[in-house]
Write a protein that binds this DNA or RNA. Structure first.
Lengths: 221, 221
DNA sequence: TAGATTGTTAATCGATTAACAATC
DNA sequence: TAGATTGTTAATCGATTAACAATC
């Protein structure tokens, strides 16, 4: 059926990925405004903070409901709570880190995820020199125990920091074990079936696209 | 002047950012094919590897020249060299790391940038307990010396790993000092003038967009 | 009520894809 | 030459922006 706008099971138009990817930025800005004591903000003001047109903000929000008041704007506190609810940020998510090499250890020792509701609950690696040892307060488990660990800790998100040669197979294992969200730090884009999300953290790609502009001169040079 | 397609100084149509951002992935795939001994690849085969339509690959490449042969495809080695040239990846780029906290140290000790032509040549921090100490083979310099260090080491790219509260001012300083490419690890999107590139490494935003799909059910569930 | 700003529709813009003549 | 695949133009698709009636 082609209707021009696809419908999901709830009779609402499907939300484009690009819209979903902006919502966390809205949450961040609203959190900041709240901390500054700002109670009301209109789409114009939010747009300035976010470097986005006011029209886009209103359009994005309209996928999820009507959160503003005409003539006034948005209640910062209320909109923030609604967006957190929509994004699933009102609950804690249990996260497993697979790969406890240099990068994995840095991630396990990084305190930045926990305050935002992402709890690192398990660390796995296949290196016998690491298994059983404590890293960032967690005992490293063998990857063979993956299914077990995921179930026991109710893990729904995995952070993958294994060498490139093992990345796809680790991702496959995670998918088999029912993990539906994967944050991958290896410089490769793992394939996953529909219904599983992957985000890649790939600073090298970022550097390599910036050199294009360095090498070819910037817009107004 | 509005002609429907903007022209740069060289009389070619302007290359969209989204095209430039795909080129490093092409380079990566071609490098892999070369290592496997593949000499010729057509857009169909490249598309499968990259999960991109063949039409898009041909279109992307057409912004830069004609690199293929009809009836045959692309010479892997030749296309790779051309793309590296276009992206400025045939030379070494000197990189300064600003911020030598936990994250900055992890970056300075990460060996993954160097083999790809990004040489970490300087480390800066304002913490007196760090200045003068060796981190990853570099002596930490005070941020006050920024201009000096950049000039002396011919730095053209900066990696910023300072606390969020200092990020914008550090970025401003870098811009003043003539840096035109910045890789930022703080969870904030710094503002820069035209002609300066910024890429943000922000794993938290990635996690927070994936939870949307976890919380709201995947496409086919 | 008058003024302001939302929510939403329609217009625009830009990127992706399809199609095919050119050509290896 | 026949077959295959590029490079490029035109069609399609989807996202952004403008405009404005609804309404606080």
């Amino acid at each position: 059926m082609v209707t021009g706008f696809e419908q999901n099971n709830y009779g609402r138009p499907e939300v484009p990925d690009v819209v979903v990817s902006r919502l966390p930025q809205y949450v961040r800005t609203l959190t900041q405004l709240l901390a500054e004591g700002v109670q009301i903000a209109n789409s114009q003001q939010l747009g300035e903070k976010l470097q986005i047109t006011p029209a886009q903000i209103r359009k994005d929000l309209s996928y999820f409901g009507r959160f503003g008041k005409q003539g006034r704007g948005y209640n910062v506190d209320h909109l923030l709570e609604e967006l957190k609810q929509i994004l699933g940020l009102t609950v804690t998510w249990n996260v497993a880190v697979v790969g406890v090499g240099r990068l994995g250890r840095a991630i396990l020792n990084y305190p930045g995820f926990t305050p935002d509701g992402f709890q690192l609950v398990a660390a796995l690696d296949d290196n016998p020199e690491l298994v059983g040892h404590d890293v960032g307060g967690l005992t490293v488990q063998p990857v063979a125990q993956l299914g077990d660990v995921i179930q026991r800790h109710q893990v729904s998100i995995a952070i993958v920091a294994v060498p490139i040669a093992y990345t796809q197979e680790v991702v496959d294992r995670l998918v088999e074990c029912g993990v539906k969200a994967i944050l991958n730090y290896a410089p490769i884009m793992p394939q996953v079936p529909d219904g599983v999300s992957v985000r890649n953290i790939d600073p090298l790609l970022s550097l390599q696209s910036m050199t294009y502009y360095l090498a070819n001169g910037s817009t107004l040079e």
